[in-house]
Every structure is written in structure tokens, then in C-alpha cells.
Design a protein around this nucleic acid. Structure first.
Lengths: 196, 196
DNA sequence: CTCGTTTCTTGACTTAAGTCAATGCACGCA
DNA sequence: TGCGTGCATTGACTTAAGTCAAGAAACGAG
């Protein structure tokens, strides 16, 4: 299965494991396909798995008090989906995750996490570094979001993740950018006019 | 020094270390006082230390392209300050950290991190869980920020961290909330009128 | 292919935040 | 204690986002 090559490439970038060890890990790993629209888990559910996207796109969102969908992230190739909610007593997720496209992912069982770590200590260190990198990225995005207007936020998205604009329905993008679909539509119009 | 009790309390909540081990750790730890206005490290510096606030308040900010200060966080009691920037080749910080008040903190040497972890394995697990909790909190705040208007954001801050309003200059709060000082002033006015 | 639903765009109007400028207030420092 | 600088407030105006409503386009199911 060629798709496993993505994994090898990724692991080489993050660890110094030799080929056998990588083999061993990849062989133990569970890869699954999901159809567009599949719900990985719902707001309120207690997640038992984590994911690593090899191909596809997943949207993270929640429903707020007024019943609106608030999209808080999109995950694409080579991004990991893990929910950290140790602070919540019931450990349930605040977010729903659904596939925006047909997707292929590594599916990790959270119960087996510890076993894998003791078998392959380097995996644990890789995980930690992934979390830390994720964390710093989210912080950076947050800071940028705070500092910029909706229009600038959209332009930044165009620069940093141009593929999202084609892959994702506009109204979901709008909610991700913190504005209404109408406003996003107008911003797009303004930008096109400026280019002329 | 009574202030170490805060540390004991905190460690008990996060680890199952016995008293001797806690003693050992706390004895090895370096506690320092900082005057209001002290700069812990500057945007562009490579951080060599991390901090844990026992008392006081620290502001995290950066200067954007237009020369504006963008405040991205405030840290207060029992919060950790650590910069994760493995993704940057030079590992320099994107942010400046300064003390908003006279403060007392645990100062950790990043070079010694590994030694401490091998001496006290539970410390490492405590650190990871702290990072994960931090991460989930930041994600939650981000989602809430995206979804709400400036006025709602301010009201949320009033609920969640009421002490900040008194401890921090308004124009810094404004930049933290992503708006101008003038707008923040008007929002406060509106809220007071609504209460009557 | 067609129908029906969903999504996107556009318009008219309201509302709130940004900007610029002026004034008042408070705190720190001499 | 007085003075100056920086901070907060207020006003007038501009600009852009929100809201409501209607029409157009795209999409999926049968």
C-alpha cells in the first residue's frame, strides 16, 4: 500500500528510528478509509481514538448555545487529530469531527497508547514534539487572528492554506474565519475588484 | 519560605510523588523575584529558561509589521510560561514577556530539563499533562474568540478572569481582546448603562 | 435528466468598531 | 507638592460587518 510511504516519510522527519523499527511500528498501525460526511466523533462523546490524516480533510466544530455551528479548525494531510481534555471530569469532547472529503487516516487506539510507548520509546518523544509544535502553531494562529480584521484573516488564509478555499464549503470557511457567509462573499468580491 | 507551599499544593494535584521526592524537587528548584516591568525575554531572543508563576502577572506580546503591540496572553498564578518553537530553525521567540506586576516565579533552566526528567520521571509526565491541558485551554479560548463579538469577548473575560481587569492597563486588555482602546472604553460604558 | 435542497450572492438597512482629534485624569518623578 | 507624560474617555465621522430577505447557482438523490 503506497499510502504507507507518507508515514515513513513523516516518521523519518521526526525520529531517528532505523528501518526495522519503523517497519514494526507501521505494521502495527491501523489505516482506515472514511467517506465524505463521516463523523469521527461527536460533541459530548468520549473519544477513544486519535487520527493522523494521510489524505483528505476533516472539520472540527461545535454547536454553541444559540445553536450555531462554530468551525474551529480544518485538518488536512500530515496533521494529527487528538483531543486533550484532561481538565474535564467526564473527558468528553467539546467538538464534533467530520470528514469534508473522502479521507484516509491512521487510527490510533488511545487505550493502546501506553503499550506502544513502552514498546517504542521514541514514539513517545515524537508524539510530544508533535504536540508542542501543534501548540505553538495554534498559539501563533490565535495571535494572528486577534490582531487582524476579517478581510486580512481571509487573505492570510489564501496565502497559508490556499487549498482549503477549494476544498471546503464557503459557509464553513466563514464560520472558521469568525464571520457570516454574506460578509465572506463580499470580502471575496472586494478582493477581486482590487485586483483589477 | 511560605511561597513554596503553592508549589507543593500544585505538585500534589498533578503527581503522586511522596513527600521526600517532592522535597527533593522543590529543593533543586530556583525561585526568583522580578520587579514590575522586568522583561523575561524579548521577541527574537532564544529562550533558555521557562517559568512558573507563584505570584504576579506576565504579559505576552509581539510587535507586528505595522509596529503595533499585539498582546496574545496574560499569565497569572499557577500558570506556566514556556515557548515551543521547535518549528523555527533558529528557535527564537516570536514574543516578548514582561512582568505587569512585581512577580515571584519558579525559573527552570531548559538545559537542565532532561537531567531533571531522568532524575524524576514523574516530572516529565506532569509536564506533558500540563502542556496538554494548556493546549486544550488555548484551543477552547480560540474557538470562543472566533465565535464571539468584541463585546461578548469582554463579558466572557469579566466572568473567567475578573482579576485581570484590575491588574492590567486597559489598552493592553484592548489589544488582548483584539480591539482599540476607544472601543473597549465604549463597551464598558454600554455594559454599565445596561446594568441600570 | 429533473426536482428539490442547500449554498452562494446581492441588495437595503442597522449597528458597532475603527480613526482622528480633543479633553480630562492619574500616576510617577523630581 | 507640582508638573509632565502617558492613559482613559468622549465626540464626530467613516467604514465594514451583521441582519433580513430574495433570487441565482450548484449539488445530490432518485
Amino acid at each position: 500500500m503506497v499510502i504507507k510511504d507518507i508515514l515513513y516519510k513523516y516518521m523519518s522527519r521526526w525520529t531517528s528510528l532505523n528501518e526495522e523499527d519503523q517497519q514494526a511500528i507501521v505494521d502495527e498501525i491501523h489505516i482506515e478509509e472514511f467517506k465524505k460526511g463521516t463523523v469521527l466523533f461527536k460533541q459530548g462523546d468520549v473519544p477513544t481514538t486519535c487520527y493522523f490524516i494521510l489524505k483528505g480533510c476533516v472539520r472540527q466544530y461545535s454547536i454553541d448555545e444559540e445553536g450555531r455551528e462554530v468551525t474551529s479548525n480544518f485538518f488536512t494531510e500530515e496533521q494529527a487529530i487528538a483531543v486533550f481534555n484532561h481538565h474535564k471530569p467526564d473527558k468528553s469532547s467539546d467538538y464534533t469531527f467530520t470528514c469534508v472529503e473522502d479521507s484516509v487516516m491512521v487510527v490510533g487506539d488511545l487505550d493502546m497508547e501506553k503499550d506502544m510507548y513502552s514498546k517504542h520509546p521514541q514514539l513517545e518523544s515524537m508524539t510530544r514534539r508533535m504536540i508542542e509544535e501543534n501548540f505553538s502553531q495554534v498559539q501563533e494562529e490565535f495571535a494572528a487572528f486577534i490582531a487582524s480584521s476579517p478581510e486580512v484573516r481571509f487573505k492570510t488564509l489564501l496565502l497559508k492554506r490556499p487549498s482549503l478555499i477549494d476544498r471546503v464549503p464557503q459557509h464553513q470557511l466563514a464560520s472558521y474565519l469568525g464571520l457570516t457567509p454574506e460578509s465572506l462573499s463580499r470580502i471575496k468580491k472586494r478582493i477581486h475588484q482590487d485586483l483589477r
